[in-house]
Design a protein around this nucleic acid. Structure first.
Lengths: 143, 143
DNA sequence: CTGTATCCCAGGTGATACTG
DNA sequence: CAGTATCACCTGGGATACAG
């Protein structure tokens, strides 16, 4: 986990903090980077988190999800659900009735993901204003 | 997600679905959804988190960052740094020397963001295997 | 060294129509 | 109701050249 690995010691060390090693230069950097990007490409798309979040309180049907998530298209909801199902974050239960009924629910893995995600949401809620202000200031200073 | 070169920062563009109620339309739902998407579009792009992470231990120069982050292009590093600076997550200090020297550092806001982000990274590290397994199983069952 | 501008392509996403 | 396929668009992002 974490960030404790290939950290170059501040300024001054100048060139090539890791230029001597013939193999695996810079240690496990790219490995962690890959994990970060991996989780982001999974959860960082436009809709996944919103779906995860909606399913956190209990199963929902396709149409219920579509109504709950403002702006999501039919196609993207299907696609998002497929990816989440594929990654074991959401389960799909189909009832062979007429008309068909399908319920989606968060798996344990999906619910465990919701925890750190909520941390991020909390940060976003708390610092949303700071970001907006900073952005306005930056744009204003750029005239 | 939105990192357009000179984007005029579109904020509340998610209207449409809830147009009837005169007060607090759609409840707090769409508001939270907007915040989630907002933070994700900021941090969920391909490079921002990696930059934030590299700057967590101390300031770095442009070239140091480029060498540290595997695969990032000149253009995207500039662009990512501008966006982070604009949002108050990174500070930029230019020393009028020859050749020019510019140092980037995480702001307090940037560092505070790193915390929940690390939670996500930790989750990713811990559950990476589960996801991969689930995916393999899903793909195998689909033959 | 740092930053900007241009060209260009792959991929994500919406609209729409069709099937079970 | 739920899912799939097709098309068309737009944006992210790499390569490259140029400027300060």
């Amino acid at each position: 986990m974490t960030i404790t690995d290939a950290a170059p010691a501040r300024l001054g060390d100048d060139v090539g903090a890791c230029s001597s090693a013939p193999v695996d230069p810079c240690g496990s950097e790219s490995s962690e980077a890959r994990i970060i990007r991996d989780v982001l490409s999974r959860v960082g798309d436009k809709w996944s988190l919103l779906v995860i979040r909606m399913l956190h309180n209990g199963p929902l049907r396709f149409t219920q999800l579509q109504r709950s998530i403002d702006g999501i298209s039919h196609r993207m909801l299907t696609q998002t659900l497929r990816n989440l199902e594929r990654d074991g974050l959401v389960s799909r239960t189909s009832y062979p009735e007429i008309p068909p009924r399908v319920e989606y629910a968060a798996t344990d893995l999906g619910r465990s993901l919701a925890l750190p995600v909520l941390g991020l949401v909390e940060w976003a809620s708390g610092n949303h204003a700071s970001i907006t202000d900073a952005r306005d200031a930056f744009d204003a200073a750029r005239d």
